[in-house]
Write a protein that binds this DNA or RNA. Structure first.
Lengths: 172, 172
DNA sequence: CCTATATATTTTAGACTTAAAACAATTTCC
DNA sequence: GGAAATTGTTTTAAGTCTAAAATATATAGG
């Protein structure tokens, strides 16, 4: 379907469109994410001896006093179920989180921070926040707000296309 | 060192700074990158049966007719050397790239696309570009340009802090 | 009831990734 | 020229991640 968009912009948009601004934004976004991820990962490793995925997981649990199911964690972190299973396995071994059967549904597991896990995680927060703040200080508050807005719009734009890929279920 | 930045903004900045805009931007950036990566990965897999890391690698090589060394690939993709070694191993097995000894330096390998690899990769480009263009169409050209600019500034801000982490080598 | 479908999670196999150690070749500099 | 430091790559061990298949439980429709 749909003729190649590339083929459609030969004449009238030679200068304004053919520089592939979209590709450059996508590439730069990936670069930034990689750069920041690497920096944060090394920071977490150096300061607390923890990995970024584990930190993200603890962060989600810290905000959910009632605990979260495996599936909910998977959705929030935007990773596969199997990934969460392995991650939680390791955190359980380390004593930072605990699984318990979910009430009303014997399929589900409710995952919670242990007291040790909660204390450990919350001890990391201030330093971690400072770490981020330091590295974002090249942007003014207005620029941060604008960046936040534009990323939100980009997110929406992508999500609009996600639905096309899903099976036609017409789910409710 | 440095007193917690969190502790310093108790009074005068209660409303303007304590909403952690930096953290929210970082979180949203990560979300966007993950979302787009997933989308692109599924697109590449569905259309061409290739993974994103391999596509990125082929993309770098396609732009470098003279070939690239392993180290240069590692730098451009911002991943570890070992990572590139494994990736290239697989692409060599598939016949898409070839290694050859680098002239003037017997430690280095020069990696190039094979004719098959070049043809295969370039056949993917138009569809892939359309795929990206479609998903970025929620942003105007001006917004894309602004997003590009802000991400560039963020990148610079982060890079400024990277140097602090390196060993004090005073290299040249 | 009870079969079909959907949901929640785990398992599996393989790919990707890192950090650190090991190797090999080059460069520096005395 | 030769020891020391540097650079380019691979190896190793462990963790992260995906897609797909397998399990187990729950919900709906007939």
């Amino acid at each position: 379907m749909a003729v190649s968009a590339a083929a459609q912009r030969d004449r009238e948009t030679a200068l304004t469109k053919d520089d592939r601004l979209d590709l450059r934004v996508w590439f730069r976004l990936l670069t930034c994410a990689t750069l920041i991820e690497r920096s944060v990962r090394q920071g977490l490793r150096g300061e607390f001896g923890i990995t970024l995925p584990r930190f993200d997981l603890l962060s989600q649990l810290d905000r959910a006093d009632a605990g979260l199911t495996m599936g909910e964690l998977s959705r929030r972190l935007m990773v596969t179920n199997g990934n969460v299973t392995g991650l939680i396995d390791r955190l359980v071994t380390e004593g930072l989180v605990a699984r318990q059967p979910a009430p009303h549904d014997r399929r589900a597991q409710l995952v919670r921070l242990t007291p040790v896990g909660k204390q450990a995680f919350e001890a990391m927060i201030p330093k971690h926040q400072d770490f981020i703040a330091e590295r974002f200080d090249g942007l003014s508050r207005a620029e941060l707000a604008e960046l936040h807005r534009l990323l939100g719009k980009l997110k929406t734009s992508f999500e609009a296309h996600e639905s096309q890929h899903e099976k036609r279920k017409d789910e409710k």
